[in-house]
Design a binder for these strands. Structure first.
Lengths: 203, 203
DNA sequence: ACTCAATCTTGACGGTGTCAATATAAAATG
DNA sequence: CATTTTATATTGACACCGTCAAGATTGAGT
């Protein structure tokens, strides 16, 4: 027994491969995470990973699931420290996702690049859905007379955060940095979404 | 002269390569667009494309620029038919981008996958900036007492639209389709952004 | 007619993912 | 403890990829 804890030859090759893959990802992006490079870095031959990951897609998927779990933990930690204000708790999600994306660009790109991943993977889907469900729960709690459902709000907010990080990482907003924060519209877009951008009179 | 119209041997290999690349993209996604496959489909040898595209990145970049231009044209056409209402004109951008993304998934994924493209390419940047600038112009026209600038609104809205299509293409919202439209929250998220999702009293 | 440059072909190199066959070592069984 | 079974790792091969260098071919300019 204890199959996962101390496998046969290597000790725990699966974990070692994932660690090497994460290092390669941070250093050189998704393209640098090749099966052969991961095997080299771990000190095994090029075909050894095949025992633990069906193919490269499976390796990337497992890596993405791990990263998703870390992001989820980050959000949890911040939510604990957050106050009870609904807006503040909503901002936790946006801030955490943006922080994460800016701090680990390659990880962010990987987990959202679903066409390079196995969409049917359970671990991946559970990790993703977990974050989403918690966001919906926060949005549903004590909201006012909003015209749309919490689900809709969650989809919209999460979409916005995702797209914002994408553009930042691609260098699309460099000319638009605020003098105050040095970051282009980071807080402002969340404010915009909270307040609305329509022509109606504001608060 | 007329270099572009009728080059030397093939007629217009550059254009032919781009057409083949687009077909391959639609059929099999970005991964199917290899230099060799494009050459095969065009009927030339595998090294011929090198005369027109420095490398694969350059080919994908040129393809993306072409696609961006088409998207821009689509928006233009719809804006002409749109009324004068600010909200309606804003919705044109969101609707066009979403329509485009859902209709041509692989094209959408390519043009936003900037880490596979040449970020310094002029044609690409001009095509992208053109869309963004027009969106800012529409947002700036006759908006009310909004708390944030038109730039901020543009970044937020465009981010949201981008993220929404991503999630749709990845099959993340399948369980959330509206009974009315069959599309999950498509109009609603734009409404949410126009109206705001904060707790403040609504219209 | 001649030169020249642009264009395309041929052939090679190292890298990749993946498969089949083999060796090895741990676990299970007697 | 000996033996069998199973999981794991190695070796070697294959086809495909992007890219480079060298040569052949063709159009344009003079």
């Amino acid at each position: 027994m204890a199959k996962r804890a101390a496998p046969y030859h290597h000790g725990d090759l699966r974990r070692a491969l994932l660690a090497a893959a994460l290092a390669l990802l941070d250093e050189g992006g998704v393209d640098a995470v090749t099966i052969r490079a991961v095997a080299r870095r771990t000190g095994v031959t090029h075909a050894a990973p095949a025992n633990h990951f069906r193919d490269r897609e499976a390796l990337l998927t497992a890596l993405a699931a791990e990263i998703f779990t870390k992001l989820s933990a980050l959000i949890s930690k911040r939510l604990e420290k957050a106050g009870g204000s609904r807006d503040a708790r909503i901002r936790v999600f946006a801030d955490a996702a943006i922080d994460f994306g800016l701090r680990h660009p390659h990880r962010f790109r990987l987990i959202w690049r679903r066409d390079s991943l196995d969409g049917a993977d359970d671990a991946l889907n559970r990790a993703m859905d977990g974050i989403y469900d918690r966001l919906v729960a926060e949005l549903a709690a004590g909201r006012g007379r909003a015209a749309v459902s919490a689900d809709t709000q969650a989809i919209g907010l999460w979409s916005m955060v995702h797209g914002y990080v994408c553009m930042r990482l691609d260098g699309n907003l460099v000319s638009k940095a605020d003098e105050a924060t040095g970051e282009p519209r980071r807080k402002a877009i969340v404010t915009a979404f909270l307040d609305g951008i329509g022509g109606g009179a504001k608060k």
